[in-house]
């Protein structure tokens, strides 16, 4: 018993650690969401929450139901694989209510986002130094954005 008496402080230290561990487990039980780990290392309920988010993008099939002429022009050109909303932005609201005017994209900003010259882009990808190429004239003066090759008829 003398050993226990002289080692009493160590038991107190062990008690502090035990208290700390129990507090940690209690806090953990309180703060870790119940659905954590349901499917993987994330909160399972997050899937339903994300699914409930409002839809912003309508999807190109929705666009094409009304704008079939544009879809046809686009399918013949180099931008065939570029989605409508990649340039026009998310337009679910416009699809739900066509009276909402989506406005036209600012070509001075939009075109150079993909076509400004950069060593990181593939060599055969069309890229230009915008200032030298057009000298400030809007791209749409010469290029029709839905089928940008000038030989195809130029801007309309």
């Amino acid at each position: 018993m003398k050993l226990f008496k002289d080692a009493g402080h160590l038991f107190r230290l062990a008690g502090v650690f035990l208290l700390g561990t129990l507090s940690f487990l209690a806090i953990r039980a309180f703060v870790v969401p119940h659905s954590f780990g349901q499917y993987g290392h994330y909160r399972g309920a997050a899937i339903a929450e994300i699914a409930a988010h409002p839809v912003h993008f309508a999807g190109h099939q929705t666009c094409e139901t009304c704008h079939s002429d544009i879809a046809q022009t686009k399918s013949a050109g180099k931008h065939a694989q570029v989605n409508c909303e990649a340039c026009h932005g998310p337009l679910a609201k416009h699809a739900d209510d066509p009276s909402i005017d989506p406005g036209k994209p600012d070509v001075a900003v939009l075109c150079v986002r993909c076509h400004s010259a950069s060593a990181a882009r593939p060599k055969d990808f069309p890229q230009v130094d915008a200032d030298q190429h057009s000298g400030g004239i809007p791209c749409t003066t010469c290029h029709q954005p839905h089928n940008p090759v000038i030989a195809a008829g130029g801007a309309k």
């Binding site: 003398k2 008496k5 002289d6 080692a7 009493g8 402080h9 107190r12 230290l13």
Partner: peptide, 10 residues
């Protein structure tokens, strides 16, 4: 931690 035991054995 409330222990004042500093005996030689402790």
């Amino acid at each position: 931690l409330g222990s004042q035991n500093v005996s030689e054995r402790a």
